[in-house]
């Protein structure tokens, strides 16, 4: 079974690449993508430590609830490890 993860709900200031509309939403890891420099540091001229990046697949039902156009359609986004928490 695919690993289930939730996007953290914090709202820090600054350059963040975890879209707000996905925060607090649960999805499945579609595939790991390897490690990339943390954009939250790179945006301010630092190299940024390497962070694992994952493609996470969400259902439209999970993101939009009853207003989803077709609940089974999906959305994939790339989310860094420090924005994900494992869902048991």
């Amino acid at each position: 079974m695919a690993e289930r993860v939730r996007v953290r709900t914090r709202m820090p200031p600054g350059h963040v690449r975890a879209p707000a509309y996905l925060r607090g939403k649960t999805g499945e890891i579609e595939r790991p993508l390897g490690a990339f420099g943390n954009p939250e540091e790179q945006a301010y001229g630092r190299f940024g430590d390497m962070r694992a990046l994952y493609r996470v697949r969400f259902t439209m039902a999970e993101i939009w609830g009853d207003s989803a156009e077709r609940p089974e359609d999906t959305l994939d986004a790339e989310i860094y490890e420090h924005w994900l928490e494992r869902v048991e």
Binding site: R70, L75, D76
Partner: peptide, 15 residues
């Protein structure tokens, strides 16, 4: 048609 699944890809990072 409704039997085709739509997969949206939000290009949020390094891909």
């Amino acid at each position: 048609p409704d039997d085709i699944t739509v997969r949206v890809h939000d290009s949020t990072a390094d891909m």
